[in-house]
Design a binder for these strands. Sequence first.
DNA 1: GTGGGCATGAGAACCATTCTCACACATCGG
DNA 2: CCGATGTGTGAGAATGGTTCTCATGCCCAC
Lengths: 139, 139
Amino acid sequence: MSSPETTEAPARRQTRQRTAVLALLEQQDGFRSAQDLHALLRDRGDAVGLATVYRALQALVDDGLLDVLRGDDGEASYRRCSPVHHHHLVCRSCGTTVEVADAPVERWAARVAAEHGFTDVSHQVEVFGTCAACHAAQR
Amino acid sequence: MSSPETTEAPARRQTRQRTAVLALLEQQDGFRSAQDLHALLRDRGDAVGLATVYRALQALVDDGLLDVLRGDDGEASYRRCSPVHHHHLVCRSCGTTVEVADAPVERWAARVAAEHGFTDVSHQVEVFGTCAACHAAQR
DNA sequence: GTGGGCATGAGAACCATTCTCACACATCGG
DNA sequence: CCGATGTGTGAGAATGGTTCTCATGCCCAC
Ligand SMILES: [Zn+2]
Ligand SMILES: [Zn+2]
Ligand SMILES: [Zn+2]
Ligand SMILES: [Zn+2]
C-alpha cells in the first residue's frame, strides 16, 4: 500500500513541537546544543520532551535545514543554516557564527584527495576564534 | 622543594601500561578509538585497565604525541602523529590516514578570520574519502 | 468527522568517558 | 640495596549525552 513513488516521501508532519524547535533555532545566531534548546523551550513556556527535541533536530538535519557541529567534549550543537555548501567561523566566547563559502578551500580539498587517489570525498572545515565584540569586552 | 623551573615538569612515569599503549599506537596507521585500543591490548596479552588507557591517551595528547579526531557519533579516536601542524586525509573504509600539510589552507583560514575581525584563531580541517585500495576492493 | 499511523513523552537503556579509592610499584634519597 | 613517598593502576560506580521503549496523543488524508 501507500504510494509507489520513486523516493518514498517520509511524510513529515507539522506539530507544535517541531514548529517550536525550528522557530527557536531561527532566532539563534550561533550553535546550540540539544540540551540547551530543550531548556530554552521549557523556560519560554513551549515545553517539549527531550526525546522529541532530539527527534526534531535529527529530522531537520536530514532535511538539510540544520548544520551540526561536535564540540571538544563530543556534544552536538545545531544551527539554522543556509542550504548551500559552506563552512563556519565561530566565536569561542559568545558562539556567534558566520557562514563562510569560498571556492579555493573547496578546490584544495578536492586536489589533496585526488593527489592521494581518494574518491567519494567529503570534508569538514571550521574556524574558531574570538570575535571583535568579545575581544573588546574581554577586559 | 622541587625545581624552581619556569614550567613545572609533570614528572611523567614510565610504566608497562603507558609503554604498551604508545607501542600499540606506533604500529597503527589510522585513528583508533580508546575502546578499540583497549580490546587490542587485551587480545595481544598486554592487558591494561580501560581507565588507564584513557589516562595514558590523555597524557600522550597533552604531550603532543597524539592527534584526536571526533567521529560523527562523538566517539574520540587517536593516532600517533608528527609534531608539526598538519591535517588529515582519512579513508572512511579502512581508516588509513595520510597527514597533509599545506600552506594555502593555513593562509585561507587566517584570512577568513581576519576579514571578520576574529582573533586568537584556530581551525579544524579534515578530509574524508575512500582510498584507492578500498575503492578497488569495493566490488 | 473518522481512522490509521506517525508523533509524543516519561523513563529506562545505552555507551563512552570520568571518577573513586584502595592497593601496587616506579623513583630516589640514604 | 632499601624503605619511604606519592604517582599510577584497575575494578566498579557514577556521569551525562543520546537513543530506545511503548502506551497514549493527535495530524491529516480520505
Ligand atoms: Zn552552517
Ligand atoms: Zn567545503
Ligand atoms: Zn595527525
Ligand atoms: Zn592547519
